[in-house]
Amino acid sequence: MALLEVKNLGLNFAGLQVIKELSFSVQPGSIASLIGPNGAGKTSVFNCLTGFYKPSSGQIVFDGKQITRKRPYKITRSGMARTFQNLRLFKKMTVLENVMSGMHCRTRTGAIGAILRTGSQKREEAEIKDFCEFCLDFVGILDEKDRTASNLSYGHQRRVEWARALATRPKLLLLDEPAAGLNFDEKQQLIELIKRIRDELSITILLIEHDMGLVMKISEMITVIDYGQKIAQGNAEEVQNDPRVIEAYLGREEDEVA
């Protein structure tokens, strides 16, 4: 059974159809990608999946449960985590505190526990700290845990976002343009990291990406969309040879260069 099943998804903004009848699925344990030219509606798809947009039609089934039109925090709790295209860190807080936000939905101490510092509260805090340090270590920036997030380099800020998403203990991780703004070396490290997340943590990955080389190298299943509609689906080779994909990209080459 697919981990994520999107059926006939549709999204309208003030009369404009941003997504039309989009269907695709993500198999557990796979690395899948959603690609398409600029403005094809990729981030809108992510926003529908994670509950930030309310789709106008269609269904999203995640891990056997309906999550269509649920609020974002509920979707995260059900095991889907995301990163943002433009970094959305809590800039004034430390790196560790940023990552701790991910553990919020997996812990439960309330006001009374906090005021009395009960035994279970202390245990929980220790558990949060340990797991967050593990996540930071996994993405390779444990040394920076006490620095203020905004003081980190861009590449490291991205890693804070991944660690934060990992801390929610997801089954599926959505990465919105993870390679944007990274240099060649950083991209190679990124590919490694994505594979390790899947292999070592058994987390399924769905990513949106512009960098074709990266997508073709790691994806097992690629869905191509243009104007909010699916135009092709398959593995790297199938997609690369699909005439509609070539047309969609070549016909728009100028935009890409700009």
Binding site: P72, Y73, F84, F90, M93, G102, C105
Partner: peptide, 14 residues
């Protein structure tokens, strides 16, 4: 978290 960025907080399951 909510004070600094509501949307990001919500995305983290808050």
């Amino acid at each position: 978290y909510v004070r600094e960025d509501e949307d990001a907080a919500e995305a983290m399951g808050i």
